[in-house]
Design a protein around this nucleic acid. Sequence first.
DNA 1: ATGAAAGCGCTAACAG
DNA 2: CTGTTAGCGCTTTCAT
Lengths: 340, 340
Amino acid sequence: MPKMSDVAKKAGVALSTVSYAINGTRSISEETRQRVFAAMEELGFKPNALARGLASKRSHIIALLFPVIERGLGFTEMEFVTNATEAALTLGYNLVLWSSAMDTVELRALIQQELVDGVVVMEVHRHDERVKLLKEIGMPFTLIGRCDNNDGINFTDIDFHKTVFDAVKYLAELGHEKICFLNQSEQAYNEEYGPVWRTQTSFEQITSEFGMQTISRFCRSNTMAGYETMQELLDSHADLTAMVAMNERAIPGIIQAITDRGWRIPDDFSIIVIVSSERIAEMVIPNLTTSDSPSSEMGRLGVQSLIQMLEKENPVVQQELIPCHLVIRGSTAPKNILVH
Amino acid sequence: MPKMSDVAKKAGVALSTVSYAINGTRSISEETRQRVFAAMEELGFKPNALARGLASKRSHIIALLFPVIERGLGFTEMEFVTNATEAALTLGYNLVLWSSAMDTVELRALIQQELVDGVVVMEVHRHDERVKLLKEIGMPFTLIGRCDNNDGINFTDIDFHKTVFDAVKYLAELGHEKICFLNQSEQAYNEEYGPVWRTQTSFEQITSEFGMQTISRFCRSNTMAGYETMQELLDSHADLTAMVAMNERAIPGIIQAITDRGWRIPDDFSIIVIVSSERIAEMVIPNLTTSDSPSSEMGRLGVQSLIQMLEKENPVVQQELIPCHLVIRGSTAPKNILVH
DNA sequence: ATGAAAGCGCTAACAG
DNA sequence: CTGTTAGCGCTTTCAT
């Protein structure tokens, strides 16, 4: 592998000149620039990342604290990770994966290796130990999600309030008067996991603004839980005609419970799945009306935001709230005037 | 951040002694070892990854060439990535993500940065340019999947033949005589993408061994393609009673096409989805009989295999073939003796 | 069993 | 505009 000194020799310049030519850190006469690049080309030279990082104290590596599989998700995270990787690579960074389930001790140990320049944090909770740690250490970071107090903190999050609002509004316009919200697990809510906590809060507020009764349920993320929760729900509220759900894995159970009652979707019951994706929508027939998660965009933005704070001399605090995108498909319809 | 010289000073030993104590690269008296570790503890010292890598020429970073979203990608890949990350971290390595869609020029450029010690390659094709490149450069690598010629190459792959065999055998035992295979896209087959190519070949061979007619279809990975392909298929073969499918995203369309004919699953038609997962199985009611992909295991094994070849002085070539695990659920039943 | 010192391949003062 | 050189924080030979 050729090194910088080889390039310098071949170009007939000092080693540092090659470095400056590559990094553009100081002005260089066009002529020597040409010669240096020609020499690099000829030798197939690529700077050694480790040496560069050690000398400059910038590794050009960022870490992604990404979720282990457990909660309801899948596609959306994958999309997120794909786009984050792509964005990082495009900007000349490498993305390493760290588990979001890591405790603060493990996290601190990894950070102290000084391998990464910054961290993108997924699965953020309202009060997040990891965020506290990153702040304390002084490691640059950006959140996918947000905490309770976000002063001076970069984040990219879904606009859950607008997402819930749009869904409820759409159902209300279809004539539905009793709308239920089916959230993820109560445990996630108690842990104040952002998406679960925010959507719950927003739904309560929004239904009250609409003058509606607030009906909601927590539900673990699997088919059986969806079935049972939905059974219980319809037993308690026989006049329910619509639902907003944020629990992809419970969907088949929910649909089954509705079908078992002899009701049809969307004629007798409408359902919108929020923070979802086209792929989930198409897994079911009729295709689901969903509010699609802006995962790809967030992956890109999160990384870009982190990198700008690493590279700009005085970075601005970026706090982006991106709404989900409502896509109307086959699982929603005007309220059936015939009562069930 | 404390450095090694600080530890050495505090412990009253030479800098190199600290290094040897940490790496165990040469014997050290128990007493000094104690002192060194006490000093490290006290200072909260962690070796700098970049410096260590530069000096030792081993970064303890490996790259994962992982797929962009396009093919059937989803849960299984996510599981794979999660476990690979976990395994790497456990063994003291960091995993960086590189896109599997990268061409050989980009790949070469990244490799020449000498950031990574080895590469785990996903989405392997029978004749894979990237594999050729890695060999040529002399970069250690392991495949998730395999090529046509695997002499001396480490790989971890699914045992597609056994997977197809088990599925066909199970259906045959249920009395089904005409069984179709629904594969992924013809394009993937023409590109000789491992899973698509191998399952196709195996299915042809196995049905012929069973004395069955070989009926198969390629199908793009979306609901509509599934619907149309299934329509055409049932038009051509009205006496078909069972199917093996390796195309998760086409499933809803397939089911719809069956239902549209007035047939019920599994009474009138049985279906097994291979190289799938419990999560997919549960997305549909009745829950699908699937042959689950050993993604987690492969993620772990792939990484372990790569790391052993990086660390052992004379590594053995590891070539693992892992079968999918048939889980019988609600989409398969004995052949209905009443013809359709 | 331990120490001294020469790099690893770069970046970034410092000097002209 | 360019060259010289002192590190970055480790590993690893070479001594002792």
